[in-house]
């Protein structure tokens, strides 16, 4: 039950959105798909006075290729991501992540921008975007700026976005040749579930087959999506092997900082990180070798 004092504005341009945010600083919330924010409001955890809808702002709901990068508008839904052939080729891990979110009807409502801005530690889209080196475009009164997504998450449900700033696009660079990215979440049921732990892995291989670039990002095991830095470093310069992946996976588990909650214990999550990281690395290698992400 949402209090009917709440007002809704549906501005049609980014400057208008920002103007409203400035005018109602502290009492306004931006609403994209609404799948998180309306639940929070119904639960009484969030009580904004004004909702600023992005739905009527032009240009935020498309996926475009600009300068060898994929620009994904903040309002693009998971089902749009799943259906996009370019994305299927460039970053199938993000397609997998989008497809495992919530449920089909929710995937028609939720948005990539909302999934990132909600900054839930278990959010599905962030880990594979982070390993892919994605950037975000932030719009504010002074203009647009591009930031690495890796700077974006500050704490549980907190991002670097200022009160009068808006995430408008996610930019995914074209992956270098022989790059594979994979996302492995663990969920307690097969649909309509949040990740208990997840791992996204990226491997870029040299001609020789050795790893030239590697990144492992973990979900749901820290206040924010977590770059397992030492695990990633451990992979670089080495030939992929089960032993190497086992080492990197064990290291990722060490680096994870999970909590006990209703979905799982710290111990289980630590164990999951190891398994999921190993599986993600294996799939990433397979994709790198078969050109899955070229």
């Amino acid at each position: 039950m949402i209090d009917l004092e709440v007002r809704l504005e549906e501005p049609t341009s980014l400057p208008d959105v920002i103007a409203l945010l400035v005018e109602h600083e502290g009492s306004a919330k931006v609403i994209a798909g609404g799948t998180d924010i309306l639940v929070d409001m119904k639960n009484g955890d969030l009580r904004p006075k004004l909702l600023i809808s992005l739905a009527r702002v032009e240009g935020l709901d498309a996926i475009e290729v600009i300068d060898d990068a994929l620009w994904i508008g903040a309002l693009v839904t998971p089902n749009q991501l799943v259906a996009d052939e370019r994305l299927q080729a460039w970053l199938p891990a993000l397609v997998d992540a989008a497809q495992c979110m919530a449920s089909y009807p929710v995937r028609n409502l939720a948005t990539i921008g909302g999934n990132l801005c909600s900054a839930s530690p278990s959010a599905d889209l962030a880990p594979s975007l982070l390993v892919a080196g994605a950037e975000i475009v932030i719009y504010k009164q002074e203009g647009e700026m591009r930031n690495p997504l890796s700077d974006f998450f500050v704490d549980v449900r907190r991002t670097m976005l200022g009160s009068a700033e808006l995430l408008t696009h996610v930019v995914i660079p074209k992956p270098p040749p022989r790059t594979g990215i994979a996302y492995c979440p663990f969920k307690l049921r097969e649909a309509n579930a949040l990740a208990v732990a997840s791992s996204a892995a990226r491997l870029t291989l040299e001609d020789t087959g050795a790893v030239s670039d590697a990144r492992v990002v973990l979900g749901a095991v820290a206040p924010t999506p977590l770059l397992a830095a030492r695990s990633s470093e451990l992979l670089v310069g080495k030939k992929p092997s089960s032993e190497l992946f086992a080492q990197a996976a064990a290291q990722a588990s060490v680096e994870s900082k999970p909590i006990n909650d209703v979905r799982g214990s710290e111990t289980h999550r630590k164990a999951l990180v190891e398994v999921l990281t190993r599986r993600a690395l294996e799939e990433a290698l397979h994709r790198a070798q078969t050109g899955g992400a070229a």
Binding site: E10, I31, G34, L51, P105, N108, L109
Partner: peptide, 15 residues
């Protein structure tokens, strides 16, 4: 909504 299934509890009618 416009042919796509969505959860009407998570949609503001005003939008």
């Amino acid at each position: 909504i416009n042919g796509e299934p969505k959860n009407s509890c998570l949609i503001l009618a005003a939008r």
